[in-house]
């Protein structure tokens, strides 16, 4: 905004109307389609519409809209990059201080276009779930990870997404009424859109039958009084708290363990529940983290479809609900 020299008070001027239209369109598309597709042929509109859209998205102060918009813009850039040549990728990557180099060795360049330092790779690849993004499945030599052009573009998309999300993380002070009307329209649109996705509430009681195998195993081990590793205890406690078990019941569960110390256990459980210390309510580690630390032993079919123990629980609940009439669910409750 600063470099383009636009004043907020100017936005109501008639000559900004088409820019505001385009900015609103960008966010609207992001909300409805998860993408920003249509491109104004006029650069005088297209270029300034982006920072204004960023400002408008930030002004919604709605984290879902912001995240959706950041992702859509990032995707757009990634698509643009996919069609462009290697030097454009290098150019944008350098803007983010990536340590990236084109592959020179002709034998290697048949398979790869770039090498990227593993720190830049990890900064962006750990959110992807396809196994090809695991560092261990990459060709890496002396800290350099080998990438194809489209892989580099995909990683850049993530970098851009985070960058835009960072920009959206600001508080926008008062805007002219005409702009606020546009923003409120977008918020309304989002509420309508979200209405389509019925969010299912978790039941208040916990349903043991829906536990994932790792949690079931930890639960049984603790209930029978045997010891469990720290990370195992953490996973179990945070899982139970998040599905709605009371801290009191969680503490009771641990009471059968041989080295049980009620005062200490209560303190620890309350800490995880966010009732103490930093006041953060902890969520259980993701499936792949549990795998790293040896907590995940026996995966079932549902496990293969989820990445998080809580997602497993939700999915399983849905399946149970489908199969079982309401009265029976009452009985299933632990």
């Amino acid at each position: 905004m600063k470099t383009l020299d636009i004043k907020i008070s100017d936005l109501t001027n008639p000559e900004y109307k088409s820019i505001l239209d385009r900015a609103e369109k960008r966010i609207e598309e992001a909300i409805l389609l998860g993408a920003v597709t249509e491109q104004s042929p006029n650069n005088d509109i297209e270029i300034p519409s982006f920072p204004i859209a960023v400002m408008m998205a930030a002004a919604t102060a709605d984290s879902f809209i912001k995240r959706r918009y950041a992702l859509a813009e990032a995707k757009r850039i990634s698509n643009l990059l996919g069609n462009e040549n290697k030097s454009n990728i290098t150019y944008i990557a350098n803007n983010f201080n990536w340590k990236i180099k084109p592959v020179k060795d002709p034998a290697v360049s048949l398979a790869y276009d770039f090498t990227l330092h593993y720190t830049d790779f990890l900064k962006n690849a750990t959110v992807f779930h396809d196994k090809k993004w695991k560092l261990i499945n990459r060709r890496m030599l002396k800290g350099e990870v080998y990438l194809t052009k489209s892989e580099a573009a995909r990683l850049l998309e993530e970098e851009v997404r985070k960058h835009i999300e960072g920009k959206l993380d600001i508080k926008v002070e008062s805007l002219p009424e005409a702009v606020m009307n546009r923003i409120n329209r977008l918020k309304q649109l989002f509420i309508e859109k979200r209405g389509e996705i019925q969010l299912e509430e978790l039941p208040k009681e916990v349903i043991v039958n829906a536990y994932p195998p790792c949690i079931k195993e930890l639960y049984d081990t603790i209930a029978s009084g045997r010891n469990v590793s720290h990370i195992g205890r953490f996973a179990l406690t945070s899982f139970l708290i998040n599905i709605g078990m009371t801290t009191k019941n969680v503490v009771n569960l641990f009471s059968s363990v041989s080295d049980f110390n009620e005062r200490l256990t209560r303190y620890q459980v309350e800490h995880i529940a966010g009732e103490r210390g930093s006041r953060t309510k902890y969520i259980p580690p993701r499936c792949d983290t549990l795998r790293t630390h040896g907590v995940c032993h026996s995966m079932d079919d549902t496990c293969r479809r989820v990445r998080h123990p809580l997602a497993y629980y939700r999915r399983k609940l849905r399946a149970i609900r489908r199969k079982t009439p309401v009265e029976k669910i009452e009985k299933l409750r632990a």
Binding site: T119, L122, K123, A125, T126, V127, K134, L135, I136, D288, T289, T292
Partner: peptide, 9 residues
């Protein structure tokens, strides 16, 4: 998360 990837490696 990055350190976990290094561990897995």
């Amino acid at each position: 998360m990055a350190r976990k990837e290094i561990v897995d490696y």
